[in-house]
Simulated assay, not measured.
Amino acid sequence: MVLVTGGTGLVGSHLLLKLSMDHEKIRALYRSKDKLAQVKKIFSYYSDNSTTLFNRIDWVQGDILDIPSLENALKNITHVYHCAAYISFNPSDFKKLERINREGTANIVNICIAEGIKKLCHVSTIGTIGRTLNGEQADEETEWIRQNTNPYAITKQLAELEVWRGAQENLEVVIVNPGVILGPGFWNSGSGSFFTTAAKGYNYYPPGGSGFVTINDVTNIMIALMNSDIYNERFILVAKNLTYEQILKKIALAMDKKPPTKALKFWQLKIGKIADIIKNILTGSPRTITKNTIYGLKHPTTFNNEKIKNTLGMEFDSLDEQIKFSSKLFISEHS
Rank of each mutant, 00 (worst) to 15 (best):
P91S: 01
W164H: 02
K118D: 13
T243V: 06
E315W: 09
A199F: 11
N55I: 08
W187H: 11
L53T: 00
I108L: 06
P178Y: 02
M314F: 07
G166T: 03
V123Y: 04
P184W: 06
D58G: 11
D48Q: 14
K273I: 00
L74D: 14
I289V: 15
L237M: 04
K250C: 10
I323Y: 05
S210G: 13
G192A: 10
I57L: 07
T149P: 11
N110A: 13
T243N: 07
I154L: 08
V4M: 07
F94G: 05
S332A: 15
I117R: 07
E172M: 10
E169G: 14
F330E: 10
L15A: 00
T301W: 04
F94L: 05
Q168F: 15
L36I: 00
L264W: 04
M21L: 12
G272W: 06
T196D: 14
D229E: 14
G7S: 02
E136Q: 14
G135W: 12
W59Q: 04
I154T: 04
F43P: 02
R131V: 04
E143M: 15
Y202F: 15
E172G: 11
Y231M: 09
K41S: 08
V176L: 07
K328V: 11
F303Q: 02
F194P: 02
F212C: 11
G313P: 08
L158W: 07
F54C: 04
S228V: 10
L19I: 01
K119Q: 01
A106D: 14
L133S: 15
Q322D: 15
S228R: 10
F89C: 08
G9H: 03
I230R: 12
K273A: 01
